[in-house]
Amino acid sequence: MLDFQLSTIVFTIVNLLVLYGFLRKFLFGRVNAVLEQREKLIREQVESAEAGQARARELQSQYEQKLSGAQAEAEKILADARTQAQKAYDDQIAQAQEASRRIRAEAEARIAAKEQEMLRGVRQEVAQLAVLAASQVAGKNLDRETDRAMVEEFLSEAGDRA
């Protein structure tokens, strides 16, 4: 029972070394390789995910910056357009007012000229009628130059007074 046998000891040591070499290569080596590869894979994926997240955050801030810039620009354009439109409106209104004032002035001038002309015509007519009436009254012809001038003078005096 307690007999140490050298051949068995040597055989067992050799057997153990062979089994160790075999299992190290084909069992532990392979499984450890897979474990390491998976660890590497996971590490890489976590790293890439973190990098992607950082990139996304950066892009987001960029977009936000751009967006706020665009908003400001839009507001500026809108304000410009509004002032321009206001100016154009004011110009138009001013032109229209100017035109209407001019037309009115012309019309007034024309009316005044017509009035003058009419007044002069009426005066002439009245003078003729007066001369006619006076000659009828006087029974003589008042065709002479002096008479007519006298009547005219009288009429203009009367007209001024009237």
Binding site: M1, L2, D3, F4, L6, T8, I9, V10, T12, L16
Partner: peptide, 9 residues
């Protein structure tokens, strides 16, 4: 169960 084996170990 063989003491030579455990001795080798």
């Amino acid at each position: 169960k063989d003491i030579s084996v455990t001795a080798a170990l």
